[in-house]
């Protein structure tokens, strides 16, 4: 037994990169930011990073919405106000404006800037084919940084042996 372990150790180590798969299913700022922060950081630490965008996560890579993601005012108990007020018209844009102001002050890059950095670091962006279908989104409506349109099987295969984070 002990000998076997020693033998394994002396075998040449495979140079394969560790892999990280981030599945993003939400499209609000408070979900998309952490996804890209983790993705870019993992890439700098030598990981092979893949992001799979599904359901509302697709907003992050759709041309029309990528630069204008919002913070949900309804059903977001983290906001410093009674939850019921979130239903008042204009509350979502107010909460979004507040958060964007703070993000700017903290010198955190915008989502499109985060996407550019992620791509520069080698992060791969995969869009979910079913979501395209369900949302009635055409391929042309996605930002050009998206690498491909794939299904769950590709995502599962890409994740094999790596870490998965579901947001």
């Amino acid at each position: 037994m002990g000998q076997q372990i020693v033998m394994e150790k002396t075998e040449p180590k495979t140079q394969q990169q560790e892999r990280l798969m981030i599945i993003l299913s939400k499209g609000t700022l408070d979900m998309v930011y952490p996804a890209f922060m983790i993705a870019t950081t993992a890439a700098t630490m030598g990981k092979d990073v893949h992001m799979f965008f599904t359901f509302w996560g697709m907003n992050a890579v759709t041309k029309k919405t990528s630069a204008n993601l919002k913070v949900a005012a309804v059903g977001n108990p983290g906001l410093p106000m009674p939850n019921i007020l979130g239903m008042i018209p204009g509350m979502t844009s107010m909460a979004t404006g507040m958060m964007k102001g703070r993000i700017g002050k903290a010198k955190i890059p915008s989502i499109p800037e985060m996407i550019t950095t992620a791509k520069d670091l080698g992060v791969k962006l995969h869009a979910c084919s079913t979501t395209l279908e369900v949302m009635g989104t055409a391929k042309e409506m996605l930002i050009p940084e998206v690498d491909d349109i794939v299904g769950a099987a590709t995502m599962i295969e890409l994740s094999e042996g790596g870490q998965i984070i579901f947001i």
Partner: peptide, 11 residues
């Protein structure tokens, strides 16, 4: 800059 700014700049 805030996280992950310093690490991405370093990288």
């Amino acid at each position: 800059t805030s996280c992950p700014g310093p690490i991405t700049d370093l990288f």
